[in-house]
Each structure stands twice: as C-alpha cells, then as structure tokens.
Amino acid sequence: MSKVEMMVNGRKVAGEVEDRTLLVHFLRENLGMTGTHVGCDTSQCGACVVHLDGKAVKSCSMLAAQASGSDVITIEGLAAGGELHPVQAAFKEHHGLQCGFCTPGMIMAAVDMINRHPGGLDEKTVRAELEGNICRCTGYHNIVKAILAASGQMSAGAARAA
C-alpha cells in the first residue's frame, strides 16, 4: 500500500491505495470523481485525460503513486464557479458531443491543445492533435468545430488582455 497526496482541482487530497492503483481509479473510486472515464485498456481512447502539473496525460496509464505530489485538474475542476470553461461552452454550442462518454477526455485534451497553440489552430492541426482521443458518436466534425471556435475565442481573449 502507498500513501498518496496530491492537489486535485485545487483541493489537497490524500489516500492509502494499493500500489497498483491507477490514477484514474484513485480519482473515480477513492475521491468519487467519476467525470474521468475509462474507455480502453491500451492507452488509446483518451477518455481518461486529465491535466498533471499543467499537461494533458492519460490517467489510465499512470499509477496514483506516480502522481503523488502533483497538481491534477480533472473535468470537474474546469468550470470556474458556475460558469462553463470556453471549451465546455463551445462543445455545447457546436454539438461536439453525443453520448458524452469521451467528452471529458476530449475537452481536457482540447484545453491542453489550445494552451499549447496560443497563436491559434487550424483544422488540420486540430485533427492531428486529436490522435489520442477516440469518439464513436460525432464523426469528430463538430468536435473540430468546437475546438476551433474555442481557440479563436480564447486567443481573441488573450489578445484583448495583452
């Protein structure tokens, strides 16, 4: 057993887990934060993506113990107060989700993608950058649209702030 401690969505959490416990299971089962999903066993579908120390990672492919001491943001921590994050809002506005299962990972990946491309994104880049996230419902059409819209809005916001 390992004692793990980390910040999750700005809150300090701790727990005693089997060493083999994956981060995603620590989040879901120990913390009851079920927004992060598991859709495959081979680290490909991306339903489990969270941010670890500011970077998108697959929480199904690391142990909770590996994440001990880190700062984790999950889908539950993205909306500030009651207001949706611009990427969440764009997914809703552009119908970038259907069954919603891949959505948390998709949105966390999108936020990371937009953060890494402050100058903006084009369709080709968005599609290439979504390599690690699988959706079976939407055909990606509206996901791409939502990410482009959110990216445009966020870089416009950043430009205004500058």
């Binding site: 879901r28 009851g32 934060m33 079920t34 927004g35 992060t36 999903h37 598991v38 999950t74 889908i75 539950e76 993205l78 909306a79 949706l84 969440q88 809002a89 997914f91 809703k92 506005e93 119908h95 989700l97 919603g100 299962f101 959505t103 948390p104 949105i107």
Partner: peptide, 21 residues
C-alpha cells in the same frame, strides 16, 4: 437548439453504470 443534457456531460457530471455506487 443546443442540448439540455450537455451541461452535465461537459462538466463530468454524467452518470453511467460504472459511476453507480
């Protein structure tokens, strides 16, 4: 019309069978 159900899905508040305890 934008979907009513999306708010819970985009915030991680959807409730699937594996989320049930």
């Amino acid at each position: 019309v934008a979907r009513k159900e999306d708010r819970r899905f985009v915030t991680g508040a959807g409730r699937y069978v594996d989320d049930m305890v």
